[in-house]
Amino acid sequence: MSLIDVENLTLQFRTDEGLITAVDDVSFSLEPGEIMGLVGESGSGKSVTAKSLMRLNPDNAVYGPKSRIILNLDSGPVDVLKLRPGRGMQIVRGGAISMIFQEPMASFAPAITIGDQMVEQLLLHRKVANEKEATTISIEMLERVGISDASKRFGQYAFELSGGMRQRAMIAMALSTRPKLLIADEPTTALDVTIQAQVIDLMKDLVADFGMGIVFITHDLGVIAQTADRVAVMYLGRLVETGTVRQVIKTPAHPYTKGLLNALPKLDNLSAELTPVPGDIPSPLERPSGCVFNTRCSVSLGTPCQTRIPDYSYVGEGHEAACLLLEEEAVKA
């Protein structure tokens, strides 16, 4: 049974300028022990999708009527979007899901030490006997993410740590409760490559040890290649391609995914120009009709792409992409 099933997730924000669609009909599921990479353009809706899994979006968020997020816990399935605030939400936030936020400073209270926050979290969420045990577990976790002098760092405030240490302290805090599902939003943006490798190994260990599932959001395709089992690619609120990490990185099918891979800085030719996906990022207030990518797509078919929303086409076993060109090819074949 899958750990989490997201069905037809649509999410809009009420703003002064009007309703903004941040997530548009997104579906995916995650098995226990599976790592799913979520990549895509900045602003495409990765973080708000992730926050939906814990209903952490602000009050101006409106979920679509058909949206369902089913979390399969030991105690049975829960529809996260139907839970009442308060007691109901405790099921979800009570330690079964942990989230590593994109901006570490946002998740540490400035006036409480790192250690006190970790201990508090553990006492709240995990069956630890007392503060002493919670302290031992926390310090051990800080060591496992490569923080030297962990017992001293334990007593420091977030602002006294370097950016990468803060990020690792947050990872340690999220992992210490041994969650069933870990949502990691850009967890390695501040880590140098050697420490990054160590932190990723730790996450993989926990996946193997007790079947934790991870939704891993990152723009670092190298990290995805090294970590994820499957990859989902988002563009302007839509999932445009999903597949195994091998399929998506080695044989991308959607023009956006191809453009993204093409923009990677290549280490075998340092003087090569960096090549972004061309064109302007559409305003979320004026989402393109038809295929959301058509305004920037170099192989667009014109009118069909501007009017019809492409279905998911079969590309290979477990590999799908939403592009009209693929539908055409399927018809021809």
Binding site: V39, T189, H219
Partner: peptide
């Protein structure tokens, strides 16, 4: 650090 490779470029 927080930008996808295309916008980063």
């Amino acid at each position: 650090a927080a930008l996808d490779v295309s916008i980063q470029a």
